[in-house]
Measured scan of single mutants.
Amino acid sequence: TFELKGKVGKVVKIAEDHYLVEVEGDKWIAYSDEKLSLGDRVMVVDVDGLKLKVKRIP
């Protein structure tokens, strides 16, 4: 999972307290300090167990 840091993915689902992002064909639970929208491109900035911390990228 640490090899996911720096990888780019996209938001595929928005849940009440987390996001579902697809990175390299796999779906992961993710969270972010900013509000994300469906389809946003994101970069993995940290890995916390099986959850990814992501940030939006242009």
Rank of each mutant, 00 (worst) to 15 (best):
K27Y: 11
G6K: 00
V8I: 12
S32L: 11
D33T: 09
G25F: 13
E3D: 03
V21E: 00
L4M: 14
V12M: 09
I57F: 06
G6Q: 01
L50W: 13
L20A: 06
L38C: 06
G25S: 10
G25M: 08
V54W: 01
E34T: 11
V8S: 09
I29G: 06
F2E: 15
T1N: 15
L20E: 04
K13D: 08
A30D: 00
H18R: 08
K55I: 14
G9L: 02
D48G: 03
K55N: 14
F2G: 15
D46N: 02
K7E: 05
H18W: 12
E24P: 01
A30P: 00
A15S: 10
L50Q: 04
L36C: 09
D48F: 09
A30Y: 00
L52A: 03
K35N: 09
D26L: 11
L52F: 02
I57S: 10
V42C: 06
K7H: 04
V11S: 02
R56Y: 11
K5A: 14
D33K: 05
R41F: 09
R56S: 13
S37T: 12
F2R: 12
I29N: 11
G6A: 01
L4F: 01
A15D: 14
K27E: 06
R41W: 15
K51Y: 13
P58T: 12
V45A: 07
A30C: 05
K51S: 09
L4Y: 01
G9Y: 01
K51E: 07
G9A: 04
D17A: 12
K55F: 05
Y31T: 13
V23G: 01
K53R: 10
R56D: 05
E22R: 05
K53Y: 14
K5L: 15
G9K: 00
V11C: 05
V23W: 00
Y31M: 13
L52W: 01
G49H: 08
K35I: 11
D40Q: 09
M43A: 04
R56G: 11
K7L: 04
P58M: 05
V8F: 06
V12P: 00
D26T: 06
G9F: 02
H18S: 12
D26Q: 12
V45S: 09
E16Y: 09
D26P: 14
W28M: 03
D48Y: 11
V23N: 01
E22W: 09
V54Q: 00
D40I: 06
V12I: 09
Y19M: 14
V23A: 03
V54P: 00
T1E: 15
F2W: 03
W28G: 02
L20W: 14
K53G: 11
L38M: 08
V42G: 03
K27R: 11
R41E: 14
L50A: 07
